[in-house]
Simulated assay, not measured.
Amino acid sequence: MGTALEAVRVVGGRSGLPTDDLAVLKEGSNLLVHLRPAPVVARVGAVTASVRGDVSGHFARADAVSRFLAGRGVPVVEPVAAPVREDGWVVALAAHVPHSPDWTPDSASFATMLRELHQELAHFTGDLPARGPLDDVDAVLELLGRPAGLVAARDAVVAGWPDLPVQALHGDAHPHNVLFTRAGPVWNDFEDTWRGPVGWDVACAATSRLLDRAAVERAYPVPVLDHWSDARRLLVRCWRAATDLHRASTP
Rank of each mutant, 00 (worst) to 15 (best):
V157Q: 01
L164A: 13
P101H: 08
D21V: 00
P162C: 03
G71A: 04
V51Y: 01
P83L: 13
D21H: 14
C238K: 03
F124C: 11
G184A: 00
P79T: 10
L17W: 13
E86M: 06
S249C: 10
M1T: 12
F180S: 14
Q119H: 12
F124N: 08
V151S: 04
T250I: 05
S229V: 03
A152H: 00
E78Q: 13
V44P: 12
D136H: 08
P197A: 11
P79S: 06
A94M: 15
P37G: 04
Y220M: 07
A70S: 13
L128R: 02
A62N: 14
V224G: 08
D163V: 15
P197V: 00
A231L: 14
D54Q: 00
P79K: 00
A148G: 02
S208W: 06
D127K: 02
G12A: 01
L17H: 09
R232H: 08
L211M: 07
P133S: 00
S109C: 08
R14E: 15
T104S: 12
G16Q: 04
S29W: 14
F124S: 09
P75A: 03
V47M: 09
A153V: 08
E120N: 04
L179R: 00
A49T: 13
P105C: 05
D189T: 07
L210F: 12
E191R: 04
H99N: 08
V198L: 06
A156C: 04
T250W: 05
E191A: 11
G28Q: 00
V84I: 14
L179G: 01
D244N: 05
R195V: 02
P175H: 02
A70M: 09
A95G: 12
T19L: 02
L164S: 03
P18N: 07
V216D: 06
D106M: 04
G160I: 05
A70C: 13
G171L: 06
S249G: 09
P165H: 01
D138N: 01
T19N: 11
V224S: 13
L121K: 05
H246L: 10
L93N: 05
G12Y: 06
H123E: 15
A46W: 12
A242C: 07
D226Q: 09
R237F: 04
A4H: 07
L121N: 07
L5F: 11
P162E: 01
A159V: 10
D230V: 05
S66M: 08
W200T: 11
P83K: 05
R213Q: 14
A70Y: 09
V11N: 00
H118A: 09
L210K: 13
T125Y: 01
P83R: 09
M113R: 12
D192A: 07
A242G: 06
M113Y: 03
L134S: 08
N30A: 11
